[in-house]
Computed example of a mutant assay.
Amino acid sequence: MSLLSPDRYLAVLGPTRVQLARRRGSQLDNLGSAACASRDLGDWAGAVDALEQLLRACPGRRGELAVVLGEHFAHFTLVPWSDAIGTPEELSAYARLRFEEIYGSEAAGWALQLSPEAAGQPRLAVAIAEGLLERLTGLAKTAGLRLVSVQPYLMSAFNRLCRPLVGGDFLFLLAEPERSCLLVAREGRWVAVRSTAGSDSDAALAVLLERESELQELEAQSPLAVYIHAPGRADLAPPPVHGLLPQVLGQPRAAPDEAPDPLWAMAETVS
């Protein structure tokens, strides 16, 4: 390997398991996974401990570390445009207030990031626990790696799979095994983001899509094109929603006798 091409390690953190992979050129190597236990939504300590265990098992580490967070570790909200906001600091304070209205005082210890939208448009905001970011930074340093990114899978997957949709009207459903998140856009503007716990079965996803479609109809909106990404669901076959058949994005391939692994599918999608 050239010294100009360091290894890139990729960790995917889920609520019950962590996956570690390494990118060398065009090859993505599976470095294993480790079980963890998250007691509550946002409980990240067990997942970081599992990642530390996996990194210790990799001798001769060098290069970069990118971390992808499952929906269990990230919180989302929509921040509407306000003419009263004139600086980035005011925008950040406004976004934090939105999170505190939803999650209470717990949101005071979260790091925020907002999507870069044009003036006059709502922004998507994501919040991640400051303690999680600090622990990952220290873990990477101890492992001899440079932490280059920590990003929710929702954003990573959208950037990889949905770029052609930007500017149109659509509903994008990310269905991880234990949580799902809906993004709705119209005329190039974000209009809704909703997260919920639940199964990623066809029946459960159909209920989510029908419910969101009904909400859009109550607001006198026209039907939306529907897109679904369910990492690890090679057999995904969602029924039509209000007469429109959802399009499955990034569906994993698996041998007939082998069930796809959701965390590995997530690693392949973003690597």
Results as ranks from 00 to 15, higher is better:
residue 176 E to L: 11
residue 15 P to Y: 07
residue 144 G to Y: 11
residue 156 S to R: 11
residue 263 L to E: 03
residue 112 L to C: 07
residue 197 A to W: 00
residue 132 L to D: 14
residue 263 L to I: 03
residue 46 G to Y: 09
residue 103 Y to Q: 00
residue 6 P to L: 08
residue 84 A to I: 03
residue 71 E to C: 03
residue 12 V to T: 06
residue 224 L to Q: 07
residue 211 R to T: 10
residue 239 P to F: 08
residue 191 V to H: 08
residue 5 S to L: 08
residue 247 Q to F: 00
residue 32 G to R: 11
residue 154 L to C: 08
residue 1 M to H: 01
residue 98 R to N: 03
residue 133 L to I: 12
residue 85 I to G: 03
residue 109 G to S: 07
residue 178 E to L: 05
residue 231 P to V: 04
residue 132 L to M: 15
residue 167 G to R: 08
residue 83 D to P: 02
residue 82 S to R: 14
residue 138 G to T: 13
residue 71 E to F: 01
residue 121 Q to R: 14
residue 223 P to Y: 10
residue 105 S to E: 13
residue 87 T to F: 01
residue 93 A to T: 06
residue 114 L to D: 05
residue 249 L to E: 02
residue 135 R to Y: 08
residue 225 A to S: 14
residue 246 P to V: 04
residue 36 C to N: 09
residue 137 T to S: 15
residue 166 V to D: 11
residue 157 A to T: 04
residue 223 P to D: 13
residue 169 D to N: 15
residue 234 A to H: 13
residue 117 E to H: 00
residue 4 L to D: 11
residue 134 E to I: 07
residue 87 T to S: 13
residue 141 K to C: 10
residue 91 L to T: 06
residue 189 R to M: 06
residue 51 L to D: 07
residue 236 L to M: 03
residue 64 E to V: 09
residue 87 T to H: 02
residue 71 E to Q: 14
residue 134 E to L: 14
residue 28 L to M: 11
residue 96 R to G: 00
residue 171 L to Q: 08
residue 268 E to Q: 14
residue 52 E to R: 15
residue 119 A to V: 07
residue 264 W to I: 02
residue 223 P to I: 10
residue 174 L to T: 00
residue 217 E to Y: 02
residue 89 E to V: 09
residue 241 V to W: 04
residue 10 L to H: 07
residue 191 V to P: 04
residue 160 R to N: 14
residue 232 G to M: 03
residue 50 A to P: 03
residue 111 A to G: 02
residue 31 L to A: 11
residue 260 P to A: 05
residue 77 T to I: 05
residue 101 E to I: 00
residue 254 A to F: 04
residue 109 G to Y: 03
residue 263 L to M: 05
residue 134 E to H: 13
residue 150 V to H: 13
residue 45 A to H: 15
residue 123 R to Q: 15
residue 53 Q to L: 14
residue 184 V to H: 03
residue 88 P to E: 03
residue 166 V to N: 10
residue 115 S to W: 00
residue 161 L to G: 06
residue 37 A to S: 13
residue 141 K to W: 09
residue 95 A to E: 01
residue 28 L to F: 09
residue 112 L to Q: 07
residue 46 G to V: 09
residue 102 I to D: 04
residue 70 G to C: 12
residue 41 L to G: 12
residue 100 E to R: 12
residue 88 P to F: 02
residue 64 E to H: 15
residue 203 A to L: 12
residue 169 D to G: 02
residue 226 V to Y: 03
residue 163 R to A: 14
residue 234 A to W: 06
residue 215 L to P: 00
residue 94 Y to P: 00
residue 167 G to Y: 09
residue 59 P to Q: 12
residue 176 E to I: 03
residue 179 R to H: 05
residue 30 N to Q: 13
residue 165 L to V: 09
residue 100 E to N: 01
residue 58 C to V: 15
residue 13 L to N: 09
residue 253 R to P: 01
residue 72 H to K: 06
residue 114 L to E: 05
residue 54 L to Y: 10
residue 140 A to G: 12
residue 158 F to S: 12
residue 195 S to K: 13
residue 134 E to K: 12
residue 176 E to H: 06
residue 43 D to H: 08
residue 238 P to T: 11
residue 155 M to G: 04
